[in-house]
Amino acid sequence: MTAKEPSVFRQGFKDGLPIGIGYFSVAFSFGIAAVSSGISWWQAVLISFTNLTSSGQFAGIGLIASFASYIEMALTEFVINMRYTLMGISLSQKLSPAFKMPFKLTLGHCNTDEIFAVAMSRQGEVSPAYMGGLSILPYVGWTGGTLAGAVLGNILPFSLSQALGIMIYGMFMAIIIPAARRERPVLFVVLTSVIISCIIYFVPAFSFITSGFSIIICAVAASALAAWLHPVEGEVADET
């Protein structure tokens, strides 16, 4: 087990490369948005360094710019990030016994949407070495991209920065589409979630639902329905 750890770490590091590159481009646009909302470059970098999350940070700089109350900030961040709690419960079932408390308290904070998705699609358990390796490049990409965007700002041609905006979604699709093709129930989950998401987005009666809440509603409804109709076999969810 311990002898294999360096190669597990390297594998994680490699798996983190596409996420890191994707994060760099998204963080770049965060850096631009943060500076144009009125905070300084180092404040933007510090937010990325401590938060490592996209939607929460974009919402956060909007709240800072509008002098929102601290309560409002806390509630908004909580609602947008509640999905991490669901994902954290999922991840907790897959952690190896070596994942002791100090690792949970540090590497646990690296559980972003993409790192989570990649960690969960891995065969078997997730060890601290794998999670650590997986987190490095996304962390560097996210913080470095914010710095680059905040400092270099508008050097990038507009059309190019817009094209970069779709990268993060390309990564999401690269995770869900092959799984949906492989497993019928996953296809069912994806379609259900997309349909609910579109209803909430386009039907005016639901316009009071924020994007963070919408994700929670879609995820819980689609997953619960699929768990009821297509319960997974024991070894699929519990690969120990």
Binding site: L86, F172, I215, C218, A222, S223, A226, A227
Partner: peptide, 29 residues
Amino acid sequence: SRFIRSFLYYIPYAVLAAMTFPAVFFAAG
């Protein structure tokens, strides 16, 4: 619980799908 384990297994796909659609259509100008 088999239901909860199934639920948690499906969560990442549901989260990513909801984050992507329809938002992706408004992410490129």
